[in-house]
Measured scan of single mutants.
Amino acid sequence: MATDAALRRLLRLHRTEIAVAVDSAFPLLHALADHDVVPEDKFQETLHLKEKEGCPQAFHALLSWLLTQDSTAILDFWRVLFKDYNLERYGRLQPILDSFPKDVDLSQPRKGRKPPAVPKALVPPPRLPTKRKASEEARAAAPAALTPRGTASPGSQLKAKPPKKPESSAEQQRLPLGNGIQTMSASVQRAVAMSSGDVPGARGAVEGILIQQVFESGGSKKCIQVGGEFYTPSKFEDSGSGKNKARSSSGPKPLVRAKGAQGAAPGGGEARLGQQGSVPAPLALPSDPQLHQKNEDECAVCRDGGELICCDGCPRAFHLACLSPPLREIPSGTWRCSSCLQATVQEVQPRAEEPRPQEPPVETPLPPGLRSAGEEVRGPPGEPLAGMDTTLVYKHLPAPPSAAPLPGLDSSALHPLLCVGPEGQQNLAPGARCGVCGDGTDVLRCTHCAAAFHWRCHFPAGTSRPGTGLRCRSCSGDVTPAPVEGVLAPSPARLAPGPAKDDTASHEPALH
């Protein structure tokens, strides 16, 4: 009773807030009518008042009428009001819900409408889902798969039609296919003929059939049928067999079959498995989609049935006599038709004709302190090069084509190399640097090759510096006499390219 009084008091307290929050009759008014909170006449009256005075006034009048009803109607109103779709449509209802007392429970059932309790003993237990329907569909599909699609060729003596089998029958139906081979029951999904010589313990000319048996419980189990008994694959494991010639990621696949039913060829011909030897223990289905393919039931050349050999690369099948050149017997292992072999060759040939990528240039590290003349020119003028003790990398590039010797140069053309002071002394051009340390401070000019250098860098042994005729380390061993002091540049003949010694390969005349 306390809860009923509290709900009535809360409705009177929030009546105006609810009326202002509800700006549309749908969905709240319609939901109240659906849950029998508002009768039909009051529903029509509220809609009429909404058209006349507006939605807030109409709902305020409806809530005032609701306060005169019993506690069950008020409880049902609060339940409908706080439904998710009403809270989404009328956003101003959320503060009312947040301020609702926590001790007021809106989930209690309506009085007088409590459903009768059902004894637990009368409640049926839930049924577990079964796979009976899938099993029945598999039974119905198996006879259809064994139905012949056409008439065999005159040369083929193997013609068999499976008798119709009602689904209610649980007995196995067997077809006489000759040579002791028996087909599987209607619940078998796949059958492959297997030679009895590969099964340990088999006697006589009995041949087993590799099947997948579907049981009534819905589970499946792969086994071997020899005669009327089934054997699990673990009985046929043979770890010492060295003649297993397995197909790549293979499961067994029928390579020879008669049109209309699988079996042995007439005249004692023995149908073979995809792999010879003992049956392997793992009978998992292969991951290669080509091995799941269903080959055609007629020859791809003459479009006739009979004894066919199936290609492992495509769905086509052929007569042995229709092949070019014809085959006398079934080859062992994987067999592919000429079209598949030709496609494989065409895929391999473009790969062989692809040009080989060019090898990157060989990189040879230079000892610290040495650099090529090109690196000396590329440096920024007026700045010493940083990191001189790091190992430089010199790339061996292809030799350029031989060019004509340089033409003779006048001494005026070499004027930018040297600057003559007032006393006739050779001065260095701006930006000249030593080729060893890279520093341009207090550098000297070689009178023979006009290269800038430090005496301490080229002659670290402490050799005394002569007063005139300074030469760098590369030119100090040259027998050519030094030019007379005061000459602007060496003779043009000295600039012609010539053979250089091994220790002077990195010091070429550089223009500054």
Rank of each mutant, 00 (worst) to 15 (best):
T3V: 04
D4E: 13
L7Y: 02
R9P: 06
L10P: 03
L10Y: 10
R15V: 02
V22T: 01
F26K: 00
F26A: 01
F26H: 00
P27Q: 03
L28I: 05
L29I: 02
H30E: 03
H30T: 01
D34H: 15
D34W: 00
H35V: 02
K42H: 02
Q44H: 00
Q44D: 09
T46D: 00
K50R: 07
K52H: 00
E53W: 13
C55H: 02
P56V: 07
P56L: 01
Q57V: 06
A58V: 03
F59R: 01
A61R: 06
A61T: 05
L66G: 01
D70L: 00
R79I: 03
K83C: 02
D84C: 01
Y85W: 00
R89F: 15
G91S: 12
G91M: 10
R92G: 06
R92I: 00
P95I: 09
P95F: 13
I96A: 01
L97E: 00
D103E: 15
L106P: 00
S107V: 10
S107F: 07
Q108G: 04
K111F: 06
P115F: 15
A117G: 13
P119W: 15
A121E: 14
P124H: 09
L128C: 13
L128Q: 04
L128E: 02
K133P: 04
A134G: 01
A134W: 02
A134D: 03
E136W: 10
A138P: 08
A140I: 15
A140R: 12
A141S: 10
A142P: 08
A142H: 04
P143Y: 14
L146V: 09
T147Y: 07
T147W: 15
G150E: 07
A152W: 15
A152S: 06
S153R: 05
P154I: 15
P154H: 03
S156P: 04
Q157L: 13
K159R: 15
K161L: 12
K161R: 15
K164N: 15
K165Q: 05
S168Y: 14
S169N: 12
S169I: 13
A170E: 06
E171P: 13
E171L: 15
E171V: 15
G178W: 06
N179C: 13
N179Y: 12
I181C: 03
T183R: 09
T183S: 09
S185I: 03
V188T: 04
Q189T: 06
V192S: 06
V192K: 12
A193V: 02
S196D: 09
D198P: 05
V199Q: 07
A202Y: 12
A205S: 11
V206N: 05
E207F: 06
G208K: 08
I209W: 07
I209G: 05
L210F: 10
G218C: 08
G219N: 05
S220M: 12
S220D: 04
K222R: 11
C223V: 09
F230V: 05
Y231G: 04
Y231M: 05
Y231H: 06
S234L: 10
F236N: 15
F236I: 10
F236W: 14
S239H: 13
S239P: 11
S241D: 12
G242S: 06
G242W: 09
K243I: 10
K243R: 11
N244G: 02
N244V: 03
K245E: 03
R247C: 11
R247M: 14
S250R: 02
S250Y: 13
G251S: 07
R257T: 08
A258H: 11
K259H: 04
G260H: 13
A261G: 10
G263L: 10
A264G: 13
G268L: 11
G269S: 13
G269P: 14
G269E: 11
A271P: 10
R272P: 08
L273S: 09
